[in-house]
Design a protein around this nucleic acid. Structure first.
Lengths: 211, 211
DNA sequence: GACAAAGTAAACAGGTCTGTGTAATATGCT
DNA sequence: AGCATATTACACAGACCTGTTTACTTTGTC
């Protein structure tokens, strides 16, 4: 009764259902889940709508948690943004397939991504464009990602017998980012095919066996 | 005296120096100047700091005019953004130089722009990234610009004897935007050179006389 | 000198955003 | 059963943003 009497001071807070609220489970495992769930939602909204366009309120509301909980997992929006970008930092690992297949297949995968409804350009380029180059930490992550992808191409090129694999790898990432930028603005997945055609010419010109 | 008595109602507004305020000249010619001056300042700030990062207050304060004056020239910030992008919509006109020189020279010019202190990527791509693809008008202007540049390349290629100039023109703009995106993130003007080298290979492969 | 046009400062309305404070409540673990 | 911890709802501070209003001033022109 004491609790009830006290709670009358606070608007309409007597005893809410609170049945299947998302944050109900408080085990250590689910605490990690919560962080991951916040990241997943932030990823989707930041990427689709823009980092500046999405407030922390929106993210919390989308998950169904309070803003306070979000701030218990991430000390600031900046930290959440950094975590979002770090989580996007995934570079494909080389497979058993022939190197040329993997390189040219990358452009096929790109075209498939362009065709997806929820594609909205490169999250790293977008973040730098949105937050400005003054944001050192964001730019650093973005630059690291771009270099990692360049190295992925370079290591595949090393398996081939091409001249100047460093330069060629740089040209390939230029083609990739160019296709992405063009598709972002023009909504034309064929840009990936154009980039692939160019990549094919460059590979053949460098002495690789293509086709 | 009456005016003085009245004005006492308003804080500290008795008679300010107002000597060489920018908006002092009110001829029709200078009215155009004012609009242009607003656009110039908006351009610089929007491009360097980002459209969302700059408020209309900041622009007005930078010029030394009142916010009201700015709103007398542009009915809303959206209109100012649109005018900013339209003003950026400048495509080089073809010159007397040989077509290959013009095409490859474009990448040299790109490298020079990358090296400039105030380069910050493609204003159209940045605007789409910042404002989101839902902003139809911005995306439309951006797409039109990209297409205009592609046509510029295509018309130059038409002067050469190359096969499939449409496809090659697309590949060239992919290289241009790729170099821009890479430089934006990595601050490396050499990206323009990498794109130029790739363009050279593509041109030669298509049957153009290069070098 | 009078007047219209354009500009000015400053406050304001109404909105959004990040981040914090607080009291109450729910849950897992011992 | 009791305790630590996580979570909740909600209010709020403080900042900034777009756009408007108001009373007044400056300027060129007639």
């Amino acid at each position: 009764m004491l609790a009830a009497a006290k709670s009358r001071l606070y608007k309409t807070r007597v005893s809410k259902p609170r049945i299947d609220k998302p944050g109900a489970d408080k085990t250590a495992a689910n605490k990690r889940d919560m962080k991951e769930r916040i990241l997943q939602t932030a990823d989707r909204l930041f990427y689709l709508k823009g980092i500046r366009a999405i407030g922390v309120d929106t993210i919390a509301a989308e998950i169904g948690i309070s803003k306070r909980t979000l701030y218990n997992h991430f000390p600031s929006k900046d930290e959440l943004i950094a975590a979002y970008l770090k989580r996007r930092f995934v570079v494909a690992s080389p497979t058993e397939r022939p190197a040329t297949d993997q390189i040219l297949g990358y452009f096929d995968a790109l075209e498939r991504r362009f065709s997806a409804k929820d594609f909205r350009g490169c999250p790293f380029v977008n973040a730098v464009a949105e937050l400005g180059p003054e944001d050192r930490s964001v730019k650093k992550i973005a630059a690291a990602f771009k270099e990692a992808r360049r190295l992925w191409f370079r290591d595949l090129l090393a398996l081939l017998d091409v001249e100047d694999k460093e330069a060629l790898a740089t040209q390939l990432v230029v083609l990739v980012d160019g296709a992405i930028a063009q598709d972002l603005v023009r909504d034309d997945p064929a840009m990936a095919r154009a980039a692939k055609a160019a990549a094919t010419v460059l590979l053949r010109n460098a002495g690789a066996d293509v086709e």
